[in-house]
């Protein structure tokens, strides 16, 4: 089976400071979760995958093509789309404009109408607020705009960086049920989350990062039962 995303021996960091050491990850289909404590290098890994930071060595293969040296906007054109941590909405723009910016790329523009209908069926609330400035929305609504913007880009792999950060428990459950829903639609996803229990329970396969190195991998269910994971993240 061919894999959407394959990362081999990735080393990356900021300037002289190396954060990731020889990380190898495979996402074939469904949902892949990456868990780890604060400072484990999860966000750095996603930044390297999307091309926001350069890699030091190793390779990133997406859809059979080596994208290690490509700039971020080209990777987005190929279908590597991230819903970033902290949402990073275009705050002065309306909700609709944010969705339009999500569909900025040619490939996504062609499916604009279809994707917009899909996004509004997923988040009926947003269709009532299309003319409101993104920065005037509540945190939960902003997260919905961020996810909707990601879907508007017609992703081949959708990457979530801490989607539940700053959300109430109720909204967190809501976000996770949407991710689960997307998984059933067959969208390949990579999820980085602090909420270990929830992520593992919906993940097909998962990796544990610690201090920039991969320490464990397996199916979501297996890791949920793993004594090390239990002790380190679940407090059991």
């Amino acid at each position: 089976m061919s894999c959407v995303l394959e990362i081999k021996n990735l080393n990356a960091g900021y300037g002289e400071i190396q954060i990731l050491w020889d990380v190898s990850i495979k996402t074939c289909s469904g949902l892949c979760a990456i868990i780890g404590s604060n400072g484990a290098g999860k966000t750095t890994l996603l930044r390297a995958i999307t091309g926001i930071i350069p890699t030091m060595s190793g390779s990133i293969i997406f859809d059979g093509k080596d994208i290690t040296k490509l700039p971020a906007h080209i990777r987005a054109q190929m279908g590597v789309i991230m819903v970033p941590e902290g949402r990073l909405l275009f705050g002065e723009m309306s909700v609709l404009e944010n969705l339009q910016m999500g569909a900025y790329l040619k490939r996504a523009k062609d499916k604009y109408k279809q994707n917009l209908d899909f996004v509004f069926s997923l988040f009926p609330k947003l269709s009532e607020r299309i003319n409101q400035k993104a920065q005037s929305l509540s945190g939960g609504e902003q997260q919905m705009v961020a996810i909707a913007r990601g879907l508007m880009a017609d992703p081949k792999i959708l990457i979530f960086d801490e989607p539940s950060l700053g959300l109430s428990p109720k909204l967190t459950i809501e976000v996770f049920s949407i991710i689960k829903n997307l998984k059933e639609k067959g969208i390949a996803m990579l999820l980085v989350e602090q909420n270990v229990h929830l992520s593992l329970s919906i993940a097909d396969n998962a990796y544990v990062l610690s201090e920039g190195k991969l320490v464990l991998s397996g199916s979501g269910g297996d890791l949920l039962e793993n004594p090390q994971v239990k002790e380190a993240f679940l407090g059991l």
Partner: peptide, 14 residues
Amino acid sequence: RAVSQNPTAAKLYG
């Protein structure tokens, strides 16, 4: 306008 408001997000969306 998107780049002026959030250059990183602009890059991420192509």
